[in-house]
Design a protein around this nucleic acid. Structure first.
Lengths: 185, 185, 185, 185
DNA sequence: TATGAATGAGAGTTCATTCAT
DNA sequence: GATGAATGAACTCTCATTCAT
């Protein structure tokens, strides 16, 4: 994952991967079959970890009773905490997966759909006005993009914390999506 | 640019590039020296074109007196119009450049800094409350990320228009950024 | 033997051989030392089995008094019966052994010499005219080649029997080899 | 062709082939695309050369007026002359092609079918008695096998000439197929 | 100005073979 | 007596790059 995240799929060599893992190339092939399989395995593991973190932080949609804002805040904190603590994995998901064609792009698209769906549901509940499904989807993409960009920013800015990233995003969006005073639940 | 944008830096072959250009490989080397130089040249040209489009749309620094919203709207329209009309170039800048390490990442970072600086100045003028420089920078990253994500969304969604992308982004941000009295429509 | 006969020496993998044998690879090495040794062992076993079958069929050197034609017929029947009943072994001896260079070619040559010597003695006794040793040897090679080819033909032709192969070969050769007075049936 | 004929398909390395040809490996790939293509090309060239030699020697089936025996003799001379003068090509066709599975076996089978068909037509005309098609086919296989074996014998026996091989084969078969005195045409 | 022809270097992958247990 | 786990070496194939013309 580290080698893929830093060098990219094509530029990463199985040699270097094996070396970093402290094993021989044939062993890597014994367990992971091919470069493609290996990359896919990395992708899936990172995607699952990220989604798990976000869901755990945000509470599933069924977890009622939590104020919307608190849910959003927790989801964002979980997201940024995870990406900040795992920059190589984040690079893998956000950059490498989407850049190297099929079948990886499909894998990345799956994750992104999960993320935007998650966000769409939060948005729909939080919006101050009515939203068509298409508007909600577009807004989700904008929000997820902003979060992704802030994750990169946090990873490359000294002393940037997950809190700061989450606060920034809320600062940007809260007025549009909800006002703490007027909307609860 | 087309080949790089579609295949990625590593997967693009000089063979295919020369063929698409209708010349021989040695000619490509004669004028552009190496794959790396060629990619860098593509990057720079695309970055310059995008920045020029955005600046022209938003009004240069000298173009004072334009209402903030109109400036933002025009900048967004210029951005989305450019990315929508030039998807390969956009893929080059947004994905390939940042994915394949140095020296390309530096090139991409330069463009991004120009963009966020530009946006920072707009934000600072538009904000409803006082912002520290760091807050402004972080917000810019969030905004630019949202715009990038919407550009991808527009490029992959049928019937999505630059207007729709720009409207979405304004919908998300205007309350936070513009003063109540400038809100219209 | 099965794996070697079907895949060829190079394409056969020790993995597959061990698997088919129902043991682990190290065990194969424990008993048979190397791929080369293993192949040689297969070769020798098959060669011995074929020669034994032919000798038993033809009557050993001690079994005098048998009419020449009967001896030839029995030898051919034994040969075709063995190759037809053991196609993998036959492929091993006839094709693989001679195709993969030293030291296997030598092993195959040994078998072939035994066969042609055997045939030479039969021919010498059966010839209608006087033969120099060299003529006899050349004739043996021709005969053995015809038999080998018919063995392949029988193995790849539906409903072909050892009898049919033997009959074909006798049809071709009897006039040249047997004396008019011994012709029967 | 030389490397394939001596080492076998699998054991031949593109490295060695290129070296023997006095060029670099990539050049071989530039012109011949893959090991499989290269081998197939060798096969086809050798097969075509052999068939051309035999047909030229024997005269096509339409070339009437030539005594059958003379046609047979010429065909055999052409065959043995070709195989004797081109032992690597002969090894390629007779051994390697048939030993290394598809798609090469099919190529070899094509050649063999051409040869046996050719021989079948000669046999049918030359036979002293009536033959069913199946008998003729089986006899062809026997004859071709004998010829193949004699070709190997001639290639590995000092001072063996094409004449000697052809004479041997005729000696073996003439009585069964035709008597010079009783059959002409 | 332009290119046909050629290659050095390195990629992913496989496999006979061997420890440590 | 038997094997799970591991690897050195070699293979086919690709590609950025450069002469000679």
């Amino acid at each position: 994952m580290r080698v893929f995240g830093r060098r990219g799929y094509r530029a990463a060599s199985m040699e270097e991967i094996a070396e970093l893992a402290g094993v021989s190339k044939p062993l890597v092939y014994l367990y992971l079959h091919s470069k493609e399989d290996l990359f896919t395995a990395c992708l899936r593991r990172e995607a699952a970890a990220l989604m798990a973190a976000v869901r755990a932080g945000a509470g599933g949609p069924g977890k009622g009773g939590v104020p919307v804002d608190e849910g959003l805040w927790a989801a964002l904190m979980a997201f940024f905490t995870h990406t900040t603590g795992n920059p190589d994995g984040w690079a893998l998901l956000h950059r490498q997966a989407r850049t190297h064609g099929e079948p990886f792009a499909a894998e990345a698209a799956t994750l992104r759909t999960e993320l935007t769906d998650h966000v769409t549901s939060l948005i729909t509940r939080a919006s101050t006005g009515p939203l068509t499904p298409r508007e909600a989807t577009a807004l989700s993409h904008a929000l997820v993009g902003a979060a992704e960009s802030l994750a990169d920013w946090a990873n490359s800015t000294p002393a940037a914390t997950p809190e700061e990233a989450a606060r920034t995003l809320l600062h940007l969006t809260r007025p549009a999506l909800s006002s703490p005073r007027t909307r609860r639940r």
